[in-house]
Design a protein around this nucleic acid. Structure first.
Lengths: 188, 188
DNA sequence: TATAGAGTTGACAGATCGGTACACATTGGA
DNA sequence: TCCAATGTGTACCGATCTGTCAACTCTATA
């Protein structure tokens, strides 16, 4: 019961923060839109910052689960790597897509030492580690370099999908990624 | 004493917004930090939004001038394309680097129809047009596709330099870019 | 010297910010 | 049935938010 409200708050706060932004969303508005009273919110989280950190933890889990599951469906490691960009393309096309929550969080809390910033960076690090592993399984001689290159394309595609005029940034990124993958695996 | 307070305000507001964020910086604080009175600020700009739009216009000019000048110094078009990433590397290493102002603006004003968002998107479009021209001058058969791929790497490098743990995102992006350039120009 | 324009000051408005005090409701155990 | 603990809602705090206003100073130029 208590945990329910807490989880409910985090889940709904995630939607609202993602849609509207962190600074732009006040605790009053959060209470009004979730139907959870401010007192309850501040019982579960000592501050807005703590709530945001909880939201980011949930987002990290959701996003990595979703992405790597989609990639696994593609089969062997090499196919998984390029399948990442198919998954991204679906995400971009989904209604309500508004860029990456962690890029947004880092934008609003630009101080690199701020907890919200460092926690956002941690999400990117976890993505890198998993991608590096898949690149290694695929037979890359330098899996870290391949993983970094693919992540550059991923972040670029996300930003461009949100901010750009382009029709298919995920497709562009996939085409570029396949060159990188081929260079790393076919001509080692 | 006909000093142009308006330009001074825009210049200083740019620094503060870039360092602290848009929502996080109030007009009171802007007045306190610039020494320009609120009355004067609201004489020149009817709203905070108008001030932000003026700041973004200035940033657009400054950034494109700086980047394309750096690229031109590299000589022929093909060298210019990869020189973009050397310039980015210098930017990332400069003290006070805090990602791209337009990515940040789009993060804080995520509604794609918001004037601040659309004006940020316009900056990216202008970058694309110039890059496409250089790619064309370099002899690319499909300069638009090459320009899009290089911009994906550029945006990814910016985000990663701000948020990532990586040592040299500009270098990684440059290495990947050179593959793209070579594929587009050497094996047409 | 008169005047217009730019800038300043300080107070103020109404809304919203993050956060809290306190009374009320609900519940489980004795 | 009673108590204690826990969860919740209302009303409120001081600070800050964007934006306004009237009264004033300064300065360049006609």
């Amino acid at each position: 019961m208590r945990a329910n409200k807490r989880d409910e708050l985090v889940r709904e706060a995630l939607e609202i923060f993602y849609r509207e932004g962190f600074h732009a969303t006040g605790m009053d508005r959060l209470a009004a839109e979730t139907g959870i009273s401010k007192t309850t919110m501040f019982k579960h989280f000592r501050s807005k910052e703590e709530l945001i950190l909880a939201v980011l933890r949930l987002r990290d889990q959701n996003f990595r689960n979703w992405l790597f599951r989609r990639m696994e469906e593609a089969g062997p490691p090499r196919a998984q790597l390029s399948a990442m960009f198919d998954a991204l393309g679906e995400w971009f096309a989904a209604p309500g897509f508004r860029s990456c929550m962690f890029i947004k969080a880092a934008s609003e809390y630009p101080d690199p030492h701020h907890p919200i910033h460092t926690q956002s960076a941690e999400h990117k690090r976890l993505l890198f580690l998993q991608l590096q592993k898949i690149a290694s399984d695929a037979g890359a001689q330098d899996p870290a370099t391949l993983a970094r290159a693919l992540l550059l394309l991923k972040e670029g595609a996300i930003v461009t999908a949100h901010l750009g005029h382009e029709a298919d940034p995920a497709g562009d990124a996939k085409a570029a990624a396949q060159r990188m993958i081929s260079a790393a695996l076919d001509h080692p």
